[in-house]
Design a protein around this nucleic acid. Structure first.
Lengths: 311, 311
DNA sequence: CGATTCCATGGAATCGATTCCATAGATCCA
DNA sequence: TGGATCTATGGAATCGATTCCATGGAATCG
């Protein structure tokens, strides 16, 4: 209610608001005497500067936005954690938005972040670049894409090379004697979904394995579609002997239904999952995971964004 | 850079800034004609109001803060998700802060949220009420505690009744014939850690099971301490035949080491975990979980907070 | 028909901090 | 010693939107 302003601080310290401001931002030259009095007044009043007013005038907010498609996806939770820690180390706070895999919510949060004049935005984008995603660049708001990209939008991005991991997974399975690998793919509307699918088809072709199109199921990166994928693949006349899931949530769904069907992973069927949930493999030692290095990704994204902000 | 302001909109629409503002907030009476022209101008310029300026004048930001101890903990990731969805439904956006289990970071984020003048704060508090936690209430900032409470701080809170679940788990294990239950406890510095421990000792006493103090290991709610706990408990001269973990992350640590030791859960040893990670039990059908209903908790917390904000 | 209410609108003050500009005193160098 | 440079400071403008207040015109009522 009765908020404490810099004027209250200045009055108590016996200086002007201008001087108090200078002391607080440590900017220009101020006398040790003034500094001391202002510090005492701040402590006594428990003063917290109004960030809105500060940002309004100075056009810097010392904050960045991070927009992820799904906080409940452990991959993005980890990403949120590393981005936030990296940003904090550089003096920025992170505002996290959750698109919940819906373009509409993504736009809503982007608008909010733009409105709040964050200094920059890190986003794992949904969709093909419609809506507010485009506003960001036409406005010249510093932005970095992470994990995913959007065709036709020229923004620095940090992604992993899906191809390497997929290729290794496929040849690993091939070396174990599997010839029919079932692939639970991500949606073709995301760059990661497309990239990994392309890597899979290339790797399968190179290893001389079955390229039967029936062996591919298209999911949506959420767990239910992993279950559905297993179900569909196992019902084939000639079912696969190994499975490759394009992300960890779909792997969770796959594992769940395999358990229910009492099909043992590693014995009855092989399963490899893309993405890296820190403790994921711990739960099912028979499960292989293709690691993503979320830590690096988050850290690099923050560094890149700060460079863009700096110009 | 060259930001578009409401004056630009007003100029293009041929009205004053005051009228443009009224149209945008839909507040007072405005002519259909003016509404139309302003809407057209907004669309043409892709205008996004500066939230800082708006909040500065109107002292409302239509945003709430949510501060969790650890985003990577799936329980809090789920909570973040439900809080955010519930808030969005009421027209509020959520700014998520991650204390990373450190009081210092908790204070940093609380200060930031206070500075940004969020309309209210939902926090799962760390510590015993030192630092900025206290500032919140002395300032009369609407706040709600969730999952945990702080003694001596009088703030509405939403918690689950740990006692019921723990009691059921203990009697379930007792009915299976277990007499020595190992308990991997949370830290006694959190209210949830204390409450669950108290419930455990009470339930064990009531069921007439062993109250050997060696059967309790005090962890810190993070996965490494779950591993350490299993290790310590199994090395006892007279080890437990069943384990109860006070949260899911410690359960993850416990499961990891049990796998490594090739001790089968459900066969060689019983394991029940408190907390509910949506798909947690799917991974290990032999694992029982005590459900928490994160959805309700998040929804209720938001409703409560909005009531506090309304007065 | 004159007076009152109502509606839409513009001008101006305002929110709280930052920052430009001016000033007064201190310091410095020739 | 006098003019120039520097330092610390206060006053005032400023950021962009909201909102109080005043005004003119239309509608309403007795």
């Amino acid at each position: 209610m009765a908020d404490i302003t810099i004027k209250d601080v200045a009055a108590l310290a016996g200086v002007s608001a201008a001087t108090a401001s200078r002391v607080l931002s440590g900017h220009s030259a101020t006398s040790p005497e003034a500094r001391e009095k202002v510090a005492a007044a701040v402590a006594e009043l428990d003063f917290r500067p109004n960030a809105q007013a500060r940002a309004l005038r100075s056009t810097r907010s010392d904050s960045i936005g991070l927009l992820v498609p799904d906080v409940r996806n452990p991959f993005f939770a980890d990403l949120a954690h590393t981005v936030e820690q990296a940003a904090l180390a550089k003096g920025y706070v992170t505002l996290l938005g959750n698109a919940n895999e819906q373009k509409q919510q993504q736009d809503k949060y982007l608008d909010t972040l733009i409105s709040r004049r964050v200094d920059g935005i890190i986003v794992a984008p949904l969709g093909e670049g419609e809506g507010s995603i485009r506003s960001i660049i036409t406005r010249g708001i510093p932005a970095v894409f992470v994990d995913r990209t959007v065709d036709g939008i020229d923004v620095p991005s940090v992604t992993t090379d899906s191809a390497v991991g997929i290729r290794q997974a496929v040849s690993h399975l091939a070396s174990l004697g599997h010839t029919r690998i079932g692939y639970i793919s991500g949606p073709q509307t995301t760059s990661t979904g497309r990239d990994r699918f392309a890597a899979f088809t290339a790797a399968v072709a190179k290893s001389g394995l079955s390229q039967d199109p029936e062996l591919v199921y298209f999911g949506d990166f959420q767990s239910a579609s992993g279950s559905a994928g297993v179900h569909a693949l196992l019902e084939l006349d000639n079912p696969p002997t190994a499975l490759l899931a394009a992300d960890s949530l779909m792997a969770v769904g796959a594992i769940a239904i395999l358990h229910r069907l009492e099909i043992r992973i590693g014995t009855d069927i092989a399963l490899i999952a893309f993405d890296d949930i820190e403790w994921f493999a711990l739960l099912n030692p028979a499960l292989s995971v293709i690691s993503h290095s979320v830590e690096d990704m988050g850290r690099v994204a923050v560094e890149l964004l700060l460079e863009v902000i700096a110009g």
